[in-house]
Design a binder for these strands. Structure first.
Lengths: 187, 187
DNA sequence: TCTTTTATATGATAATAATCATATCATGCG
DNA sequence: CGCATGATATGATTATTATCATATAAAAGA
């Protein structure tokens, strides 16, 4: 090993980070290897030493996406996390946001690997959501599923509509509904 | 008028139909003018006699998308319509499905026109949903918003996960939650 | 039948795509 | 200090892109 042992791994991580950002901002077909590598401070040459194809890169980007699950795990207050998620500020930060919402529409078009990675992330997220359902409440699984759909649907719709009264109204309503689904008395 | 007066209009409609299909299946950047025109039985030459740009075409595709709203308007049974929407069969028909769900992620990347067209469609859909809230129930607007987010989030997530137990479970749960939100007693 | 007008087709341009073969660089070991 | 090797760069290939200028086809009125 001539380079430091973690050198290549760090480069790889950098590529993945930049690719995640660009995929979220421009979509899979909207950004090329050249721009991804340039954003990572490299040129296209080395790409195939790290990934076998653009599709594989995409799947691995999804594999690393556990931000929302992490925030839930680290916070005792699920309502707070969900409220921060269904917020105009998060809506306007598409590139930094969670890929589960931003790349939802891209995944069906990509291969098996992407779908599997996505599904795994959903499963992990559901576990964290379920852990926040008050003890004793029935149907914690259903509650988690409902909250998840409200988050993904709410932020997606709000982003498509941009800034405006309806967008904010929708976010507010989804915020309430998601919190009620998780912690409220219904269901 | 040398050609029949509605000749060009019919061609235009055909282009819009095919473009809608292809955009839903492959995304905005995933399909080119050539393929769209070929799918409409033409060549790329005539495209710019119908639309000023690909972006304008995309916005006009969104403008014509009122399928779910129409189904709601024509059916007295909203629960039936929503159940058909949040169904594995509809999940697997991405190309034919409603663009509000399939193209959600594309809209923020496209221009003002696309966002406005999308927002208009959401407004119309909300009106139809609200019309199905039982008379006397409070907060019909909130109920409609919640049902909408559950539909878009549910079908989007289910498509990204493909066919599988979790996907079906999520659809079933969203179906129940959306119907309960619209017609149930809570909220 | 011939002309005029509208609708579509052909061909071109300049840019960018994914991928790979080959070349160069940087670095730690001897 | 130089060399071997792993990491990155260069250059090329083949394909496709949006867009437009120009050419052709079709059809209705004379």
């Amino acid at each position: 090993m001539r380079y430091a042992p973690e050198h290549k791994a760090r480069t790889r991580t950098r590529i993945l980070d930049r690719a995640a950002l660009l995929f979220r901002r421009e979509g899979f077909a909207g950004v090329g290897i050249d721009r991804i590598m340039e954003a990572a401070g490299l040129t296209r040459g080395g790409f195939y030493a790290h990934f076998r194809s653009k599709e594989e890169l995409f799947a691995q980007v999804l594999d690393r996406e556990g931000d929302l699950a992490r925030r839930l795990r680290e916070s005792p207050d699920a309502a707070r996390v969900l409220s921060g998620y269904l917020d105009p500020e998060n809506r306007d930060q598409i590139a930094r946001g969670c890929s589960l919402a931003t790349l939802t529409g891209e995944v069906p078009r990509r291969g098996r690997a992407a779908r599997r990675a996505y599904t795994r992330q959903v499963e992990q997220l559901l576990e964290e959501l379920e852990a926040h359902v008050p003890a004793g409440a029935r149907d914690s699984r259903s509650r988690a599923l409902e909250a998840l759909a409200l988050c993904v649907g709410g932020i997606g719709l709000a982003r498509a509509m941009g800034d405006g009264e309806l967008s904010r109204e929708l976010l507010a309503r989804c915020r309430d509904a998601a919190c009620a689904a998780l912690e409220g008395g219904a269901a």
